[in-house]
Design a protein around this nucleic acid. Sequence first.
DNA 1: GCGAATTGGTTTCAAATGAAACTAATACGT
DNA 2: ACGTATTAGTTTCATTTGAAACCAATTCGC
Lengths: 154, 154
Amino acid sequence: MSDKPGLRLERFLPYRLSILSQTTSADLHRRYFGPSHLTIPQWRVIAVLGRFAPLSASDICRRTVMDKVTVSRAVAGLRRRRLIEQATDGNDRRRSQLRLTPSGQAMHDLIVPLALGYEAELLTQLSPAERKALDGLLDRLLEAARGLAARPDP
Amino acid sequence: MSDKPGLRLERFLPYRLSILSQTTSADLHRRYFGPSHLTIPQWRVIAVLGRFAPLSASDICRRTVMDKVTVSRAVAGLRRRRLIEQATDGNDRRRSQLRLTPSGQAMHDLIVPLALGYEAELLTQLSPAERKALDGLLDRLLEAARGLAARPDP
DNA sequence: GCGAATTGGTTTCAAATGAAACTAATACGT
DNA sequence: ACGTATTAGTTTCATTTGAAACCAATTCGC
């Protein structure tokens, strides 16, 4: 099991991001969303509807950066559980107008503080200055990543 | 589409990590691994075998933090393509001894510089000091996340 | 030693995922 | 207007995923 020079996977940025993201998402799901029988996409739908309502399904796609199939299924599941309700847009009858029902709002108000609490716990390790730095770094990395992704292959 | 106070998903750390990780992994796959018909798990296996060989399948699980099913399948695919080869451990005949074949090494030597180049492009936006800061922040966040994940639910 | 528990690894099965096809409603070009 | 192109959203299908069952080899306990 020699150690040749090569790529150190455990230091490779995309890999580290993947592990970190997996760890936090899985833990968040295990603690809070799973017990409430919410999938991650459903949780995201509830979160954006709690803040911006009414939204159409495609608005939700934009806001959550999720595939429209994923959103369609999350919405279907939440409607079945009467956590969100759907009206039809008067101007454009293809578009839906989605919003939380009272029990959806209750779910939202239950889950959001837990999620924020989790985030706060993660960040307790960092000083305020470090949090600010992290914030900016993540923004710039995402911008860079989107720039690269938009660029045609060489 | 009012803006109530609530959770701002686009600022929520686990969400941002998820988007950033998805964006970089998908782009890396689209550019380099996809055209070489490598999945992300296969790429990871090649990366760790290029550095530490021979390894057993469970060694690879540890090093890559992937599920043993995922590793088993990645290894099977790479063996079918004769990019890695398997011997049996003399001491413990359950364990495999995996290493790159010459063509596997060639694939490794082809892909690693591309992956490192991609990472370098991502990081060009950041000054050396910022990269160092990012490095430390990611380490500490991962440590914190693992600490939380290991902790029993409240 | 020898049966039970553990570990390495594969297979099976059910759930999640997304690309592509599809339906329905609207916008666009001439 | 009227046919074509586009957009909103759902369904279908093939692929990916991981939990659990499984087989084989090894180690542990007595």
